[in-house]
Amino acid sequence: MKSVELENIVKTYAAEKSIVTAVDNVSFSVEEGELFGLIGPDGAGKTSIFRILTTLLLADKGDAKVLGYDVVTHYKKIRDIVGYMPGRFSLYQDLTVEENLNFFATIFNTTIQENYDLVADIYRQLEPFKTRRAGKLSGGMKQKLALSCALIHKPKILFLDEPTTGVDPVSRKEFWDMLKRLKAQGITILVSTPYMDEAKLCDRIALMQNGKILQIDTPPNIVNKFGKNLYAVHSENMFQLLIDLRTFQQTASCFAFGQNHHLTLTEDPLSITELEEYLKSTNHLNTTITKIEPEIEDCFMQLMKSPSPKEIIQ
């Protein structure tokens, strides 16, 4: 049985003078025990999908099932078996760490003791602060408490909506290590993130933009589908290099990418020699051109259409 199934889900919201399509005919499924990622920027439709699957929001059209239960007709059943960590911190700020966890255990008719094994790994780090009010915790601690509360009733599926947004790289790494350990215990995890570097940590991902799925596959397969040679180009003056590369006739795409610029060419690999000569003529020092493996972010940019101002307001 599939853990999650969506078929042609549509969700629109009425704005002042227009209708915003948040989820635009989306279909996908998540296998049992899979770590599945919804990857995309704000406005991609990730949160709406989470809210539909956790039975907090009704879709306009389409069907969705969680562990075989329909999200409309069997919503109560679903609420018993899923854990949900919303994007916004939603625990009780004026209850302590321990009170929050106890509260969530109680409303699911269980106790902290009964499922302690599942949260022990995470909760142990919080125990020194268990009498502190949740509102007084640091960002990283809040995130760990929210995850503990989402886990305390031993859910079969975990829905995590942007758990690492605004979190520094060290805490992000720790959080993903925790997800890996939960996956090892057989819990299906559906997670969303705007950080493209986290995509490769999932079994499968859906790249999303403006309510639509751009592509859905395993990270290695998505990289394989890039279909073009990608070059990392570096010189001493990176800003000038970006301008010069964009001016080069055979440049198909060029983006700043950390310490290098990532470049694809229209007539590859013929234009490489021409590119080398062109860069010589532009007086760049210590230029290097290296063929590299694309990252998920390269693939995402290739798939997405940059929003032009014509499209942005109807």
Binding site: D42, P194, F239, F255, A256, F300, M301, M304, P307
Partner: peptide, 24 residues
């Protein structure tokens, strides 16, 4: 202060183009 949080990858780069220009 974290100007590009949650922004798509292409816009994020366009935003840095603006930063480069301002610095220039």
């Amino acid at each position: 202060d974290e100007p590009t949080g949650g922004v798509d990858p292409i816009t994020r780069r366009q935003f840095w183009d603006m930063i480069y220009e301002a610095a220039h």
